[in-house]
Design a protein around this nucleic acid. Sequence first.
RNA 1: GGAGAGAUGACGGAGCGGUCGAACGUGCUUGAUUCGAAAUCAAGUGUACCCUCGCGGUACCGGGGGUUCGAAUCCCCCUCUCUCCGCCA
Length: 427
Amino acid sequence: MLDLKFIKEHKDEVKQNITNRFMTADVDAVLDLNERRIGLQQKADDARQQRNENAARMKGPLTPDERTPLIEEGKRLKDEIAALESELEEIKASLSQAHMRIPNMAHPDAPVGKEEKDNLEIERYGDIPQFSFTPKDHVELGQSLDLIDFDTGAKVSGTKFYYLKNQAVILEFALTRYALDLLGKHGFTPMITPDIAREEVVEGIGFNPRGEESNIYTLEGTGTCLVGTAEITLGGYHAQEILDPQKLPIKYAGVSHCFRREAGASGQYSKGLYRVHQFSKIEMFVYCLPEDSDNIHQELKGIEVEMFTGLGIPFRVVDTCTGDLGAPAYRKYDLEAWMPGRGENGGWGEITSTSNCTDYQARRLGVRYKTREGKTEFVHMLNGTAIAISRAVIALMENYQQADGSIAIPGALVPYCGFSLIGPKTN
RNA sequence: GGAGAGAUGACGGAGCGGUCGAACGUGCUUGAUUCGAAAUCAAGUGUACCCUCGCGGUACCGGGGGUUCGAAUCCCCCUCUCUCCGCCA
């Protein structure tokens, strides 16, 4: 969320930013509610001051004649305060609701646009494979090689669930280990995080735990949700803390399951593993000083590039447009891998993304640090996907498929897999 | 899940219902001392909000509610932690 003072002083920019993101949020209502909140707060504070002073007058022994009027005054003040407080609570609730709807400001260089097609391609790596045969998509490959079972997933758990089998299971662990080793070299602390988080934390990160459009599963009656990403649990890790600036940046690599409702999301681009209700992911998360966040964002992008060039998968990097940023991100880069089985003749599909959320999440979660001058300021928080297993598996299977229907394993993964080819089962 | 104990500032640890934003100790910061360090001495050392920006005001002693003119202190509910039992990977 944005600082209320900032909103007040940069009203027009904030409004323009909302327009650029194609979101709806009422800046004037927020400012108006805030003014009313301040007025009421002042009234309540004054009344409390009177109450305290009145009570202080009754400290010593008093005659009933002195005492009675003071008690009457105290009772009157008590009622007044109660009325003011309940009014204040209402205003604060409306304010908070309206305030939360205002998205983060966007980086001045982020392309302005509404949809995915407005994302700006900025880098491209690797060559799109040319097959001497008609390539299969990963669903077909997964079935013929007995690696992925969607049918049983649907029977047991529902649509968009799946079983990984045989070498695909090893592949998941190999990719996980590959990612953790690379992140270790970059100074990340590995963590396996809870797959469940409290609603406040989920909201603090910027996800909406409730409502029709929510992508999050809530656990009825518990006040908790299944996490959609370890970004939630890693971002909540230091909630309400004041961090030592000497220890910044803090870099975590979180391994977790990710659960997403994906309500209404379907179509040919969602087939197979591309959009599922559950997958595993290795996530990067960084807490840093405000002045460092732009550089660290570039660093996270660089690590993602290293991750996928290492796997020999062709991909491009796009600078995500304002309409596609989501509320918390100030700037976001997506890596889109070439997926030969996508659409008619293959296509780009998002495999990772990295966002600089500046102080937007930190303000909601209360993650601060002390400056040299002794002031407490909000840290900046960034996240990036190291590897989302399901999508990485799509890219690997489809790009590394052979004429005979087998799948080669990229050299970097062979030591982790213990095999270099996934061929048809012989028995 | 059952029984019991507890939750106070960075930490430890006090706190007859008014003089408590909170004793005391430790830590930390600054100054004195020292060639320097230790030790010692002195001062300072939470967060947030508001304005009439003052050596101002308000709130916060796990969270919420209640009693009272007045609650860290009394009552109720919840959460969390610890110990024991049960269950379990």
